[in-house]
Simulated scan of single mutants.
Amino acid sequence: MRGIAALTVALMHVSSSFVELPGRSVLDKAGLFAVQALSNGYGAVVAFFVISGFVLARSLDRNFDIVRFVIARVFRLYPAAIATVATFAAVHYCFGFSVYPKASFAPLNVLANMLMLRVDIDLVMWSMKAEVAATPLIILCAWLFRRYGMGTVIAVAVALFALAFVGQFAKSIGDDTNLAPIFAFPVGILVHFKGRDVAAKLTPAAVALCAVASVAVFCACAFFKPSGTWTLLVQCLSAATLVMLIAWRAEATTFAPLDLAVVRLYGRISYSFYLLHPLALWGANRLMVYSIAQFDSVPVTVIVIAAFVLSVVFITPLAWLSWRFVELPAMNRLRSVPASRGVLPLGALPGDQHVN
């Protein structure tokens, strides 16, 4: 699901300036409509947040070791981000090229981007900055659920959704990052703790229907303001439904394509792919502008899809190298870090007896 979400973001990057073109035939207009429906990149980021809440709640549920959890987040998020910013900086220093015109490659700003304090060099890293900011929230919600039950986590999610309407909150960690969809993390945590019970009550036909409906609603959100607060909520609930069904009803034939080797590949490299794909945008956009001007008989849909495929082909090897030689070594290094002493059970309060 992460891999598909990363490809959705990539399609949005490539197509956003061209799907609103009038189209050269009725079929071409229908094709551009389909491309727009499949390129809900902002919704895909919301799905990333739901998935993170779900996966990280599972991790904390197994072992509520806060120190090790925080170390794991550092090892998981920062190495690939640092390597990506270094790659962008190297391309700029060697060729004078920058994906974004307002990016600064002054040494201190490069360092700030590597630490995710700023994200002007690679704008997609705003979501990773939000993930870092959400780490205490995830720990709190996992603890609240085990100590006080589902109602407390629902209350946190509702409060964060209400705050999403407040601009000062949405931009509280910088104008380059939108915290409005941060309520998706508690929703993902709820899917971990309660999703199995809900999914178990569904018949196979209901599972298939819910999955198809969730995807349809998610795609429909592409035609509304993707960052609108109510749209964020709909996208969050659609993603949460899919995560719940994929996690707890994996036997459904609807999800068989997720086991394909190519889908699993993009699932593994999705983080690096997401970070690196903006490197392909300049070439993809130039290709589309040239092709649309020179080949007036070729449908715009074909040109957009071709540019998207070429961008994916270009970035995939780079993403695999980053996954293989940056992400994996960092995760393997984490396995050698000993657990901290005095792990606090999820149901315990500070001051209660610790369990070693």
Rank of each mutant, 00 (worst) to 15 (best):
Gly43Gln: 12
Ala44Phe: 02
Ala44Asn: 06
Val45Ala: 12
Val46Asp: 12
Val46Thr: 13
Val46Tyr: 08
Ala47Ser: 09
Ala47Pro: 07
Ala47His: 10
Ala47Gly: 08
Phe48Asn: 14
Phe49His: 03
Phe49Met: 05
Phe49Arg: 08
Val50Asn: 09
Val50Pro: 07
Val50Phe: 07
Ile51Pro: 12
Ile51Gly: 07
Ser52Pro: 08
Ser52Val: 05
Ser52Gly: 06
Gly53Lys: 04
Gly53Leu: 01
Phe54Val: 03
Phe54Asn: 03
Val55Ile: 06
Val55Leu: 00
Val55Lys: 01
Val55Asp: 02
Leu56Phe: 02
Leu56Ile: 02
Leu56Met: 06
Leu56Ser: 01
Ala57Tyr: 02
Arg58Lys: 04
Ser59Arg: 02
Ser59Phe: 02
Ser59Val: 01
Ser59Cys: 04
Leu60Gln: 04
Leu60Ala: 00
Asp61Leu: 03
Asp61Tyr: 01
Asp61Gln: 03
Arg62Ser: 04
Asn63Met: 11
Asn63Glu: 14
Asn63Arg: 15
Asn63Thr: 13
Asn63Asp: 14
Asn63Gln: 15
Asn63Lys: 15
Phe64Cys: 05
Asp65Pro: 11
Val67Thr: 13
Val67Leu: 12
Val67Gly: 13
Val67Phe: 10
Arg68Gln: 14
Phe69Thr: 05
Phe69Ile: 02
Phe69Leu: 04
Phe69Val: 04
Val70Met: 12
Val70His: 09
Val70Ile: 08
Ile71His: 12
Ala72Tyr: 06
Ala72Lys: 15
Arg73Gly: 07
Val74Cys: 13
Val74Phe: 09
Phe75His: 15
